[in-house]
Design a protein around this nucleic acid. Structure first.
Lengths: 214, 214
DNA sequence: TGTTGAGGATTGTTCAACAATATCCTAGCC
DNA sequence: GGCTAGGATATTGTTGAACAATCCTCAACA
């Protein structure tokens, strides 16, 4: 067993949350989930703690854990921190090894292939990979894991998106452009573009959220 | 019951770690500590989880929990992420409300007062507060809590510092200068100074660590 | 209509027993 | 002498249970 039981259960729950099987706001009953996944309450609670650390769920005393509901303020906040981490990556691009640059280009290609196939869900995943690769240019394990957590949170907001295509399509070309700027060493321009890019993306998500709740 | 047994034990362990009674790298035996603190292993494990969240200890599957030991690579990494977050704060300084700017100045004054009193331990705390205040200019709760965790980790490295005064004294004036640049709107200059500032601080810590291990 | 309180359901805490795993020690081999 | 295999031992992982504390529901009541 390479993974502990709690880690295994946490991974399963994470998948169920990200797939929408366990929707935002849903309460995770200890008794029900313990029965479904065939683990004791103690182990399940340990799994919950792992998810809490990823802030995929929130814990309310004596009330249990709930799948996180993303408020507009959360989206704004997440994009602020993303901007900080991805900017750090872009600024360190000059000192990053070739493998990390190649990884950035690879994610753009991945997104373009998925778009050509009409797999807009996959385009979304590739887009997240692209931004993770940008932050990875900073060569910092702590930045990497912080990015992973942020993007996992953000995935919760995507559930409210009506049309993945309408959201992701405009960014395909911008991702490619950004990757090209990094390749050619136009770091200052890349940094400026990244800022407006993230501002635009944030506004699109906030707009969609407002629509969904109206 | 205001505090659970686990919280009480966690506080006791935290004190023992910070006092050096439980040195970095030391394994926290469930059986031994359970006997000493007169709690069951399960309760002790709950206490461990609280310490893990503060990253005061690390958990290795089937091997137990160990008092965290900071490697030079960790210090380098922490400073990379600090640079990303504090730079984000400085760049957002123009849009930050007055109260946040006042908070920055207040921490500088706090440090100067402690230095005048010869309380170099307090100067160290004030310095951490200063950097937290810088990051806070970004107005992002997630950045704030990430900074808190980074600074808590860094505190472990301070244990290896032979002379708090020699480390902190040179930065008193630089903190004041940085605060002044922000007040007067010299954002670009503040950003540049912050970068070299953090590089210098990192090298000082790395040097002290190398000395301690030699 | 709003409030109060009993009760039932759920989580919080702790425990001790059993299973799974790592570590250490010894014997045998090169 | 140094090294590897494998079994004894020590330690952590997991479980189910018991009990306490808290929240929620819903009916009775002012």
């Amino acid at each position: 067993m390479a993974l502990s039981t709690a880690q295994r259960v946490a991974a399963a729950l994470r998948a169920r949350i990200e797939s929408g099987d366990l929707p935002p706001g849903h309460r995770l009953s200890e008794e029900a989930l313990g029965r479904e996944h065939e683990v004791s309450r103690n182990t399940l609670r340990e799994a919950f703690r792992l998810l809490i650390h990823d802030s995929l769920v929130v814990h309310l005393l004596n009330r249990g854990v709930f799948v996180r509901v993303l408020e507009p303020a959360d989206v704004t906040d997440i994009y602020r921190m993303r901007a900080a981490l991805e900017t750090a990556g872009v600024r360190a691009a000059a000192h990053a090894p070739r493998t990390l640059h190649d990884a950035v280009s690879a994610t753009v290609t991945e997104a373009e292939r998925a778009a050509a196939a009409g797999e807009w869900q996959q385009v979304g995943s590739a887009d997240l990979h692209f931004h993770r690769a940008l932050a990875a240019l900073a060569q910092s394990p702590r930045i990497d894991s912080a990015m992973d957590r942020l993007l996992a949170e953000l995935r919760l907001a995507f559930h409210e998106m009506p049309s993945p295509r309408r959201f992701h399509e405009p960014f395909l070309a911008r991702n490619r452009a950004l990757a090209k700027m990094l390749e050619s060493g136009e770091h200052a321009r890349a940094e400026a573009e990244l800022t407006t890019y993230l501002d635009d993306a944030r506004e699109l998500i906030l707009g969609a959220m407002k629509e969904a709740h109206a």
